[in-house]
């Protein structure tokens, strides 16, 4: 099943049209930028940490609806998590978009489950993973 409405779910379109946490993050102590030279998309994720917990997250960049929504939704999903939980959340999102189109969707993904539609569009996985890779680079930096 690769219906275009399954790909562009309302949550994703909403975050594309009205991105959350968009712009430079005041007091950020981690930042990482990942680009896709094939399409020119680029996403920067910034994190502000308190001890080992993400106190705030922000993103900037340009890209398609999936890349923008992933940046926006990840900053929402990661805020408040400690580094280990954040890394696990990133792994879960990557596993989701790399899964077979008919694989069951884990029920602990929250809004990120909206990216399940990407499973039917192999050429678009990378669009979501730009933000995942940027966030991962922040956590390891």
């Amino acid at each position: 099943m690769s219906d275009v409405r399954a790909l562009y779910q309302a949550t994703i379109v909403d975050h594309d049209r009205h991105p959350r946490n968009h712009g430079a993050l005041a007091g950020a102590d981690r930042a990482a930028t990942v680009d896709n030279p094939l399409c020119g998309d680029v996403v920067t994720i910034e994190l502000r940490l308190t001890d080992r917990t993400i106190a705030a997250a922000g993103w900037t960049g340009r890209g398609c609806a999936l890349a923008r929504a992933a940046g926006s939704m990840l900053t929402v999903a990661l805020a408040g998590l400690d580094a280990a939980a954040a890394a696990a959340r990133l792994d879960a999102l990557e596993a989701l978009v790399r899964a077979a189109p008919d694989a069951p969707v884990p029920d602990d993904l929250g809004d990120l489950a909206a990216f399940a539609g990407v499973r039917g569009f192999a050429s678009r996985r990378g669009c979501v993973l730009i933000a995942v890779r940027a966030a991962r680079a922040c956590l390891s930096g």
Binding site: G40, R124, C127
Partner: peptide
């Protein structure tokens, strides 16, 4: 609307186009 999103939606209608930089980044 980003070109990749346009191309994905067109593809669902059976229409194959190219999206991206077409190997011409400075021209874009």
């Amino acid at each position: 609307v980003h070109p990749h999103d346009v191309a994905t939606i067109l593809d669902q209608e059976g229409v194959c186009v190219r999206s991206g930089l077409h190997c011409a980044e400075p021209l874009h």
